[in-house]
Amino acid sequence: MIRVVLPTHLRNLAGVGALPAVELDCAATRRSIIDAIEGAYPMLRGTIRDPATGRRRPFVRFFACGQDLSHEPDDQPLPEPVAQGREPFLIIGAIAGG
């Protein structure tokens, strides 16, 4: 199981506001994780990646194991601790004004 931490707004939107992380049975790549999120929580479709281009939204960032993985390829395997469920995959709303 891969553990994914969602930002507050998306937790609320998905109705999992109280959960520290959602657990997903999927391959350990960015694309697989987002596919699994959108499958399990259809209301999140388009909120993490642009539905037209498939690209990560500019103010969304991906972190795991102390690394910024935001600019890595979608299909690149994520670090082993993420794949084993020992470390969460963090989806972060970038700090920006407003």
Binding site: P7, H9, L10, L13, M43, G46, T47, I48, D50, P51, R57, F59, V60, G93, A94, A96, G98
Partner: peptide, 8 residues
């Protein structure tokens, strides 16, 4: 909508 997560 937000600038972070797009349009709903």
């Amino acid at each position: 909508s937000t600038g972070w997560f797009g349009q709903l």
